[in-house]
C-alpha cells in the first residue's frame, strides 16, 4: 500500500509539473501575445518601462535589455532555463549570476524575483493559516449548532449573519475594523504591522489578529453554511441512528459520528481555499498593507512587471496543486472507502 501511495504521489507531482508549465506558458503568452494582437511592437512594450522624457534610443535599449526583440518562444525558453540553470544579469558595472531557481529580475526594480517571493511567503502563509484555523473552528461550531437547532432563532440569526459575512467586501470590513479597533480603540495593531513568527510569536499573532478575523469572517460564513448543510444531511444517516441505538451520549453522536461524516466535503473545499490563499490573499493583504504574495502580484500586474507576475503565478499554481494533492491524500485518511 505505501508503494502505491508513493507511485500515486509521483504521478500527481509529474502532472503538477506539466500543469505549472502550461500555467506559466499561458501567463507568458497573455503578456506578450495579447498586446501583439493589438499591434504592439517590442518598442511599444518597452515604453512601459522608461521615463516619460525617454528618447527612441532609450526605448530601443530597454527593449534590447528586456529581450523583447527575441521571439516570444525564445523569451519563454530563456525564462524557463533560468529556473533550472540560473541566469546572468547585467546590472551595469558588473554581471551577476542569478542561481537556479532564477525566476528572473523585476523589470522595474532590478530585484531578483525568487528571494522576493521567499521573503513574502511567510507573510501570506501566516495570514492564510491563521485565518484558516479561525474560520474552520468558527464555521464548524456555528454550522453544527445551527444544524442541530435547525429553525430556531440561533439558526436564523447565524445564517443571516453568515449571509452578510459572505457578501461583505473585505476592503470595507478591513478598513472599518482597522479604523475602529486599531485607531479608535487601540486594541489591535495598525495596518502593515508584521513580525515574523520566529522572532516573536506573541507579536506575530497580535499584529495579524485583525487580518485573520477579517479574512476568517468571510470564509467562516461560507463554512458555517456548508457545515450546516452537511450536518443536516449526515444527522439523517442510518449510522447516526445506530450510534444512538448503541446508547452513545448525544455529544459523541454529533461529534464523533455526525461531524466526522460531514467533514469530508468541507475538507475538500478547505484544502482548495487554503491553497488559493497561499498564492496571495490579494484583498486582505491590500487592505491591511501586508507585504505578502498577493500584494506582490498586484504590484507586478499594475506595473507590467512580468517576472513578478510569472513568479507569483507559478508559485500560486504550485500551492493549489499541492493543496489538491494533500486533500486527496487526506481524503484517504478521512474516508477509508477511498483507499483501495
Amino acid at each position: 500500500m505505501p508503494a502505491t501511495v508513493i507511485a500515486y504521489i509521483i504521478r500527481r507531482l509529474f502532472a503538477a509539473i506539466v500543469l505549472l508549465f502550461v500555467v506559466s506558458a499561458v501567463t507568458f503568452s497573455i503578456f506578450f501575445v495579447t498586446p501583439k494582437l493589438l499591434g504592439a511592437t517590442p518598442e511599444t512594450l518597452a515604453t512601459r518601462y522608461v521615463g516619460r522624457t525617454s528618447t527612441p534610443d532609450t526605448i530601443r535599449a530597454t527593449a534590447e535589455k528586456l529581450g523583447f526583440y527575441d521571439p516570444v518562444v525564445v523569451q519563454y525558453w530563456n525564462w524557463v532555463k533560468g529556473i533550472f540553470v540560473g541566469a546572468d544579469y547585467d546590472y551595469g558595472p558588473a554581471v551577476e549570476h542569478c542561481p537556479a531557481p532564477c525566476l528572473g529580475y523585476s523589470f522595474r526594480t532590478n530585484q531578483p524575483v525568487w528571494p522576493d517571493l521567499l521573503d513574502r511567503i511567510p507573510v501570506t502563509l501566516s495570514l492564510a493559516v491563521g485565518a484558516a484555523v479561525l474560520w474552520l473552528l468558527a464555521g464548524l461550531a456555528v454550522g453544527t449548532l445551527s444544524a442541530l437547532r435547525k429553525g430556531t432563532i440561533f439558526d436564523r440569526v447565524a445564517m443571516g449573519v453568515s449571509l452578510a459575512g459572505v457578501s461583505l467586501p473585505i476592503f470595507f470590513t478591513g478598513l472599518l475594523s482597522l479604523s475602529v479597533f486599531s485607531y479608535n480603540l487601540g486594541w489591535t495593531a495598525v495596518g502593515g504591522a508584521y513580525t515574523p513568527f520566529l522572532e516573536n510569536p506573541g507579536e506575530w499573532a497580535y499584529n495579524l489578529l485583525l487580518p485573520w478575523i477579517t479574512l476568517a469572517l468571510l470564509f467562516s460564513a461560507q463554512y458555517a453554511r456548508l457545515t450546516r448543510a452537511g450536518m443536516l444531511e449526515t444527522m439523517n444517516e442510518d449510522f447516526i441512528r445506530t450510534a444512538r441505538a448503541k446508547g452513545l451520549p448525544e455529544r459523541t453522536v454529533v461529534v464523533r459520528h455526525g461531524l466526522r461524516g460531514a467533514l469530508t466535503p468541507i475538507l475538500t473545499i478547505f484544502g482548495l481555499d487554503v491553497g488559493l490563499l497561499l498564492g496571495g490573499a490579494i484583498l486582505t493583504e491590500s487592505a491591511f498593507s501586508l507585504q505578502g504574495l498577493g500584494k506582490y502580484a498586484i504590484e507586478g500586474i499594475l506595473n507590467y512587471d512580468l517576472p513578478k507576475v510569472m513568479g507569483v503565478t507559478i508559485l500560486a499554481a504550485f500551492f493549489v496543486v499541492v493543496a489538491n494533492l494533500i486533500v486527496d491524500l487526506l481524503y484517504a485518511v478521512v474516508d477509508p472507502r477511498v483507499r483501495k
Binding site: 441512528r241 448503541k246 474516508d335
Partner: peptide, 19 residues
C-alpha cells in the same frame, strides 16, 4: 439502550459508520 435492549437495522452498509 444498547445494554438491556439492542437493535439490528435493515441495511448494514448504511447503518454502520463508513469511517
Amino acid at each position: 439502550r444498547g445494554k438491556r435492549m439492542a437493535m439490528i437495522f435493515q441495511d448494514p452498509l448504511s447503518a454502520m459508520h463508513p469511517y
